[in-house]
Each structure stands twice: as C-alpha cells, then as structure tokens.
Design a protein around this nucleic acid. Structure first.
Length: 227
DNA sequence: GGCCAGGACACCA
DNA sequence: TGGTGTCATGGC
C-alpha cells in the first residue's frame, strides 16, 4: 500500500502508525474532540468548519444557539438570508446556509429529525446516503459518522494527508479513500482510537503550519521520519 | 496586503 | 477523470 516506510523499512505499517500515535498522545495529550455539547451540534460544526478556522465556527454556533435555531426543524424554518447572517463569521455563509438547510431537510424527510434513527443504519449505507446530501463530501460525512455517531471511520483532512506524505507513508493513489485505507486497514477499527488519532494529527498539523516549515526540529515526531 | 483555515460543488476539457 | 474557479470571513 505505502510506497515507502520511511526510516523504519522493516517495521510494519501498523507498528509505525501506533508509534506515531503514541508520540502524539504523549506530546499533546487527549484532545477531547469533538468540542460540542450534542451530536447535532457536531454535525452543524462539521459543515461550518469546511475551509474555515474553528475559532470562527464557534462564533457561528454560538450565534445559532443565541437565536435558538440549533435544531433541524428550526434550520428548515428560518429564512435563508437570516441563517446566512447568523453564520457570517465562518465565511462562505451563503453556501453554508444552503448546506445546513439541505441536511436539515434530508434528516426530516428520512429520519424524522432523529439522529438515533439515522445512526441506527448500517455505517457504510449511511455514509453513502450522507454523500448524496448537498454540501456533504467525504471528509464531512466521515466527521459526522465518527464524531457525532461514534462510528469507527477514519477522517482524512489536509493535515492528515500532509503528515502521511511527510512520513513517506503516501498511498499509491491520491484519492481520499487511498489515504483512509492506510488507517482503516492497519489499525483496530475502534471509534475512540480513530477519534483521538485524527484530532492529534490536526493538532500537530497546526503546529507545523505555525512553524512554517516542513522539517520541524522541535516537533515531537521529528525522529519518526520525514516530518 | 497577503496568506491560510478541521471543503465541497459546478463546470470544463 | 482531473484541473480550475467560486464561495468569503477573520486572524496573523
């Protein structure tokens, strides 16, 4: 699967993934993701955080709470322009308002606004259904399944790709699913593990971006290979 | 003032 | 199938 195992060619990919995880956990500690009070808030956050900084997403979610519209029924009912105004801070507000309404409409039509019913579906069937909803792509669908539904699906984002590439673990293909298979096929399929692992990858990815360099002498993974 | 942030979609070749 | 433009604010 991987082209290159970096500086530990004899070690299994599973072993390397576990070692990276252990280093990150020791360095950053538990991340306690997703930062939300309930599953529906996780889903709204997953849509709003698309290409946006989380700090700005938090402002939008707080605005939705203050306006008492953080529910599927209210999101369907509120005028589009008004909804866009509430989520102004996270950018792409017009597009994201449409996306929120699309999900709320789909949830009402298919599951009577019940996330319990929704998550009772087979995980991969549900993933396929979510991908048909306007505004929900692979990363957002997987974030919903993992962080709102506690399903063992690994989330791949730009940070994860960057870390994998820099460790010489790049898959043969460049598709989302190619990167996802690295984790799904080489780690135990446990939601708590996938939850913490992805959160830690985002954290170290942010650190690397702040340091604005591909090789980071102070990074806790520096002796793990090509970071 | 420029770049980037926990993407997705529409359009085109 | 892959590349490109668009959506857009806020912080550094």
């Amino acid at each position: 699967m991987a082209k290159d195992r970096g500086s530990h060619p004899d070690e299994s990919l599973t072993g390397r993934l576990h070692r990276i995880y252990d280093r990150l956990l020791a360095c950053y500690g538990p991340q306690h993701w997703w930062p939300a009070e309930e599953p529906f808030e996780v889903i709204v956050g997953a849509i709003l955080t698309q290409s946006a900084a989380w700090i700005n997403v938090e402002k939008s979610i707080e605005a939705l709470k203050q306006a008492s519209v953080l529910s599927p029924a209210c999101l369907r009912q509120i005028p589009l322009v008004e909804l866009a105004g509430l989520i102004h801070s996270c950018g792409y507000y017009n597009a994201k308002a449409v996306k929120l309404k699309s999900f709320a409409g789909w949830l009402g039509d298919n599951y009577d606004d019940s996330l319990v019913k929704m998550f009772a579906q087979d995980t991969f069937f549900l993933r396929a259904q979510l991908l048909k909803v306007h505004g929900i792509g692979e990363e957002t669908a997987d974030s919903i399944l993992l962080y709102a539904g506690n399903k063992p699906i690994f989330v791949i984002d730009a940070y994860t790709r960057r870390i994998i590439d820099r460790h010489g673990l790049s898959p043969d293909g460049n598709k989302y699913s190619d990167y996802q298979k690295i984790f799904m096929f080489n780690l135990a399929r446990q939601a708590p593990l996938f939850n913490e692992y992805h959160a830690l990858l985002v954290q170290v990815g942010k650190d690397l971006c702040r340091k604005a360099e591909s090789r980071c002498s102070s990074c806790c993974l520096q002796d793990e290979g090509r970071i």
